[in-house]
């Protein structure tokens, strides 16, 4: 059996040995981090985004790289998932996009702040994370075959970036609002235009927020929606 002095030697020797290995691995990690995190893309905007991320304690609800709190969504790949345009609309008034759901603090971000936060999140999304977050692997293997795939032209970019978060088109998209496959049959140009300009004033209490669309975007959306018969 070990004597006390042998036990002490085991403790001290083991600690020194494994600390040394740990420090060597740390040196190697720091030396080889550039290609994994794309250090060259670490712009002023990304760094400012990180500062905002920390100043507002976003990790107090969200996780990033899987680290943080478990109250709000994982954001490592959020730019891939939602797109920059959607995030930028969302950050202006988080609750408007998810009415009646779990609440996020509304921050008074400037346009520059929002751009920087998104730059930070986009940079995070590019990191080589050894496969995190994984793709769902128990997803029911359904292939959506589109019935009316040819009847409409390609949706405007804004539609693909923002609207699909809540509305479905040809079987893809969210289910918060109604599917829009035949919306052109039901409404006139004038009605759609009024609605998109300010949904809550047309129908108080609606879940759809005022997205403050530019005239050009609104017209483009209305014209396209009218083709969906």
């Amino acid at each position: 059996m070990l004597s006390k002095s042998q036990a002490r030697l085991f403790f001290i020797g083991g600690t020194i040995f494994f600390s040394t290995i740990f420090i060597l691995l740390t040196v190697d990690t720091v030396a080889n981090i550039d290609p994994r995190q794309h250090t060259e893309n670490l712009t002023k905007s990304v760094i400012h985004g990180k500062q905002i991320w920390e100043a507002e304690n976003c990790m107090g609800c969200h996780t990033i790289l899987g680290e943080g709190a478990y109250y709000a969504p994982e954001l490592t790949k959020v730019v891939d998932r939602r797109g920059k345009e959607w995030i930028s609309v969302f950050l202006r008034d988080p609750e408007a996009m998810f009415p009646g759901q779990r609440r996020m603090v509304k921050y008074d971000f400037s346009d520059q702040d929002i751009e920087d936060v998104i730059a930070f999140l986009a940079w995070i999304g590019e990191i080589d994370t050894n496969g995190f977050p994984p793709e769902p692997d128990l997803m029911p293997a359904t292939t959506i075959t589109s019935v009316a795939a040819t009847s409409a032209s390609e949706p405007p970019a804004y539609f693909n970036n923002v609207c699909v978060a809540c509305h479905a088109f040809q079987g893809n998209g969210g289910n918060v609002g109604p599917a829009l496959d035949s919306v052109g049959q039901r409404y006139t140009r004038n009605e759609l235009d009024l609605w998109l300009a300010d949904p809550p004033s047309v129908k108080p209490g609606t879940a759809m927020p005022n997205l403050n669309l530019s005239d050009a975007t609104r017209t483009e959306l209305v014209e396209w929606l009218l083709t969906l018969k």
């Binding site: 691995l25 981090i33 080589d128 050894n130």
Partner: peptide, 18 residues
């Protein structure tokens, strides 16, 4: 210490470390 020092690695799986 034998296990815990290098065990720190379980926090380094998915943060961008090698």
């Amino acid at each position: 210490f034998l296990s815990g020092i290098l065990g720190t690695g379980h926090h380094y799986y998915y943060i961008g470390a090698p």
